[in-house]
Design a protein around this nucleic acid. Structure first.
Lengths: 223, 223
DNA sequence: TATATAAAAGTATGGTTTACTTTTAAAGAC
DNA sequence: GTCTTTAAAAGTAAACCATACTTTTATATA
């Protein structure tokens, strides 16, 4: 900003809130925290944190994510900024919203106990505080946009996976059933998956090949 | 934000910056202000303003736009928030960026003289201060996304216009030449344009029909 | 060896995009 | 009055892509 004085202007608290998506047991899930004090005690919220003096909102979000998950280099994307004057009854807080994608494995499931965090299926979320429901909905919309022209499996699935598992992930992101044959054709046409020699035989007698993302081809297709 | 104390946390200045796009003489243009004092004297910037205590960023942007253009209900969309700690040498300022679309007519051209504002062709912009170049580029990207599945003529063209004029607008937004026949077919297939009985004969001997947006059909196609 | 399962491959159709051609309306030249 | 010229407008044919559906395949288990 320029032209107007910096000194007479009011300042506000600036926070980040983050919709953390994961995929577990065939469902898209959202990591939520339960509020422990009044007001809104017992209600759930997205993960949030303040933006410190030496940080951008992006850095703050990455820091909060690292503190909670122990992971570095988490996929993170800015969604929107929420700034209604009375959105937070505790004071004037402007919040920059992000969404993050993480792979849920055994380690990640322990989050629940340590931080009072819990994974909720996006299809049946509890009541969220403030404007967090709207933040979630916008985040899911952005995730869908992203998933339309990018394969998001690498951020949400284990390192190796079958096409069927990838399709299940997409089914749960878009809340619809993709045709198995067409889905296979489509994702393979991206040309960023390598087929391994091993198969998953737990579902079918024939067995489904495992695939993994080819990082080089991913970069070439300018992700 | 919850869980952490509101009181010990630092507060920051919050501003909005707005990339105002217009269309004039066959070119997509951006409205810029020339900075009058050091530092960065003589350099150009997007239009900006502070977010007041009783305003959301959206409201602040609309207020600034109204002050500068005299127009109400300007098309306005949030792009992103810029929050690098040292992005503004004058202090810690977090800026929410918007882009706006306005019709440039005689009245709007006067802006220049009154506010030191000037319309610049997006193809040859001057050096911008701070991170404003990046703000512009992100804004243009969003405008292109928008124009892909929405006809943006109503926000940028006079009330009546020919298909050729609309195509020229799209040519300048996307920096490429659309095929006349295919473009016509495409935009008419949206089903939101009404053909008038009058023609523009200034360009061709045959004359091109004028069109206008049908507000009702626009609403039905849930814009 | 037969059966059952889902994976994987294949096919046929319809719709959309793209590049290109033809026809049209009307102003201005002759 | 007829001819020429212009870009608008309409039309066409091929290429491409999405979708629904069918057939073949590999393999564990009965």
């Amino acid at each position: 900003m320029i032209l107007e004085s910096y000194n007479n202007q009011e300042k506000y608290l600036v926070s980040i809130d983050c919709a953390i998506f994961g995929y577990h047991e065939g469902e898209l899930k959202l990591l939520l925290f339960q509020r422990e004090k009044e007001p809104e005690k017992g209600k759930w919220s997205l993960i949030g944190g303040w933006v410190n003096a030496d940080e951008s909102a992006e850095t703050a979000a990455a820091r909060v994510l690292h503190r909670i998950t122990g992971l570095h280099d988490i996929f993170l994307e800015q969604v929107s900024t929420f700034s209604e004057p009375n959105r937070d009854p505790g004071g004037r807080v402007i919040s920059v919203v992000f969404y993050a994608l993480i792979v849920i494995d055994g380690e990640r499931m322990k989050l629940s106990s340590e931080y009072g965090a819990e994974w909720w299926p996006v299809k049946s979320l509890p009541t969220l505080i403030f404007d967090h429901r709207q933040m979630f909905e916008l985040s899911l919309e952005r995730l869908r946009q992203k998933a339309n022209y990018h394969l998001v499996g690498r951020e949400l699935l284990p390192e190796t996976f079958t096409i069927t598992q990838l399709r299940s992930l997409y089914n749960s992101i878009f809340s619809k059933d993709f045709d198995p044959g067409n889905f296979r054709k489509k994702v393979l046409s991206f040309g960023v998956l390598d087929r391994l020699d091993t198969k998953d035989t737990s579902v079918s007698k024939k067995g489904a090949y495992y695939y993994k993302f080819n990082e080089q081809k991913l970069n070439e297709s300018e992700n």
